[in-house]
Design a protein around this nucleic acid. Structure first.
Length: 366
DNA sequence: TAATGCGGGGTCA
DNA sequence: TGACCCCGCATTA
């Protein structure tokens, strides 16, 4: 297996996506990052399937930069409830905007799955008033990635979640590998069914074709905080029409006339799990919640790491989890048999990670 | 049907 | 001219 170690230093490497010559003498490549934010750079292997597909947790659409060598994508923001409603279990509605313009228009004509209010698209303006942009460039054995801007809105649901809500439950291959793939790859027992939803943010497993599979849980509390903050910043009272705002960022227009005709997304999202269709058809019940007995939180060992990326050499599978996962750990339903398997708790992409090792391997929390 | 990539073309500084 | 954007089209899943 190709060995990959953190390239968090890439964030400060002195290269730019537009450079004529990009660094080529790399021994290691980055792990795929589902939620790149800020002005970060990554260098992925050209064999990385997620990088090949230019995937992102953010809803990114293609933007023409008239440069066929560099693919540019801009963030579409997040679809929120205009009532800023909260589900009975304290979740917010953060839907993934459709990439396709037509689909997105149709999407905005629908109703909030929770309160049946209208949905509003919160535009991303994290890059000088414009959407955050991602750049992809394929050069030789590497795929260079650079992002410009800081997302100023909550994370939308992932493609996996979005796909999971679709009526036919057709799950297209996306950023994620399924639990069954994880198991196939690593003999990892991952009972994820019903495990997901901690404040509306399911587990997302990132496939790593030549490296450890990764599971990522979004940091929903951060999102909630951010959302609360943004509410105060009139995110919803100044839900501007994109084009109008871009023409005149200091003016505003309301866009609250959308209606919506179908719903119950939330219910399907809550029922969503990471089992593949194959697993479901095969009646694979390894994921059953009832059969899983999570290790008590107090028995875990925690350690802080400054690494931006979660990568460990010679480790087969890994799990990447966000910070609030710690709080809700007991509610999550997966297990890891591999005694050498560390679990990473991503506090924030710009912050530290908490690792959980087998309690015999590491010291108590720092 | 929607995601994705490409490319034409418009606006603005 | 460069950096934005929108839009339509073709391909793919």
């Amino acid at each position: 297996m190709e060995q990959r170690v953190p390239l968090s230093q890439n964030t400060v490497l002195n290269w730019d996506i537009n450079d004529m010559k990009l660094p080529q003498d790399l021994e290691k490549t980055d792990w795929f990052q589902e939620w790149p934010d800020s002005y970060v750079k990554h260098i992925y292997s050209s064999t990385d399937k997620n990088a090949q597909r230019h995937l992102s947790g953010w809803a990114m659409r293609n933007t023409n930069n008239h440069n066929s060598r560099i693919l540019k994508k801009s963030c579409l923001g997040v679809l929120v409830c205009s009532n800023d409603c909260t589900t009975p279990d304290g979740r917010k509605i953060y839907l993934r905007p459709a990439i396709c313009d037509k689909a997105r228009q149709k999407q905005q004509s629908k109703l909030c799955p929770n309160c049946k209010g209208s949905l509003k698209l919160v535009s991303c303006r994290g890059h000088g008033g414009f959407p955050v942009t991602n750049f992809w460039r394929h050069e030789g054995p590497f795929i260079y990635f650079q992002t410009k801007g800081v997302h100023d809105h909550p994370k939308p649901e992932t493609k996996l979640e979005s796909d999971g809500r679709k009526p036919a439950h057709k799950k297209r291959p996306s950023i994620v590998s399924t639990a069954s793939e994880l198991k196939r790859n690593s003999n990892l027992k991952v009972p994820l069914s019903g495990a997901i939803i901690y404040e509306n943010q399911p587990i997302t497993a990132l496939s790593q074709p030549s490296g450890p599979p990764v599971i990522h849980i979004n940091d929903m509390k951060m999102d909630l905080l951010a959302n609360d903050h943004m509410l105060k910043d009139n995110y919803f009272t100044e839900n501007l029409n994109d084009s109008e705002w871009r023409r005149n960022p200091r003016s505003g227009s309301f866009n609250d006339s959308e209606e919506y005709n179908e719903g119950d997304w939330l219910a399907s999202a809550m029922d969503f799990d990471l089992q593949s269709d194959e697993d479901q058809q095969a009646g694979n019940t390894n994921h059953d919640v009832e059969s899983y007995h999570p290790e008590p939180l107090e028995n875990l060992s925690w350690v802080m790491s400054p690494f931006h990326n979660c990568q460990y050499p010679n480790i087969e599978p890994s799990l990447v989890l966000d910070s609030t996962f710690k709080d809700g750990f007991a509610n999550l339903n997966f297990s890891v048999d591999d005694k050498d398997l560390p679990t990473f708790y991503n506090h924030n992409q710009e912050e530290s990670y908490l690792y959980r090792y087998n309690s015999s391997q590491l010291s108590p929390p720092l």
